[in-house]
């Protein structure tokens, strides 16, 4: 692989653009296929068409083309996790989520919590959750978790999350807290169906107690939700 090819793949990833690296198995000839352009020598029409299909599906595969056997390596932007509340549980959840491959963004307007030293190597936004969420625009590959317990901070974030395409919305709090939250959000115009999207109490029930255990239960629930959507067939086979 040419060094400039490697750097172009990294640049695409850093700017959250999907890209396919087409590579001829026989000699390593390559092309980078973007949504709107192709760079490189391996630019036969059928190779580019197959690469565009891989770009859409996000699946890497080896295909037979007029140029011979070509490996299409799809690099799609990683999923995102927006964590509202830079609290103790977040300090456990954030590094685990990053290790799992999520781009993690922590949001908390409180300076003492949203200190960079508490969250090395991830984006920490010291902002009001509704403003940050409006700008971040949760999409179908974004998970949102609220952890503050404070309605002033959690509720505005949930209002944006529940009207977005976020694949997972979770909110920390007991059953009673969750009932009160429901009353407030329905008053604010959230529908029953929208509220029903919230995973609350948050996380898989594994009897988690410590911040790290709760973080594991939340991350496990997020992983389960995502694989059920992205790999429904495989998951069904495994469940059977």
């Amino acid at each position: 692989m040419k060094l400039e090819t490697l750097k172009a793949v990294q640049a695409a990833r850093d700017s959250r653009r999907a890209i396919v690296l087409a590579k001829r198995i026989a000699d390593g000839a390559e092309a980078l296929v973007y949504a709107d352009r192709v760079d490189g020598e391996l630019a036969q029409a059928d190779v580019v068409a197959a690469a565009r299909a891989a770009l859409a599906s996000g699946r890497s595969e080896t295909v037979d083309t007029s140029a011979g056997k070509v490996f299409l390596h799809a690099f799609v932007p990683p999923p995102r996790m927006i964590v509202v509340g830079a609290v103790h549980i977040a300090q456990a959840l954030v590094p685990m989520a990053a290790m799992t491959g999520y781009d993690v963004i922590v949001v908390d307007p409180r300076r003492a919590f949203a200190a960079d030293y508490r969250f090395p190597n991830v984006t920490v936004l010291q902002e009001w959750p509704d403003e940050a969420m409006e700008r971040l625009k949760p999409d179908a590959s974004t998970a949102v978790v609220t952890l503050t317990h404070d309605p002033k901070l959690d509720d505005p974030a949930l209002q944006v999350a529940l009207t977005s395409d976020a694949f997972y919305v979770g909110s920390l709090g007991s059953r009673r807290t969750h009932e009160k939250r429901k009353a407030r959000l329905l008053d604010a115009g959230i529908t029953e169906a929208q509220f029903g999207r919230i995973h609350g109490p948050v996380g898989l029930d594994i009897g988690a107690r410590s911040p790290a255990e709760i973080a594991i239960s939340i991350l496990a629930e997020i992983i389960r939700t995502r694989t059920a959507q992205t790999e429904p067939a495989e998951r069904k086979v495994k469940a059977a």
Partner: peptide
């Protein structure tokens, strides 16, 4: 991108450098 995620291509570029 976070430094905690396993970054194979980043490692390749760093080793090359």
């Amino acid at each position: 991108m976070t430094a905690a995620a396993e970054d194979i291509l980043g490692t390749a570029a760093a080793w090359k450098a």
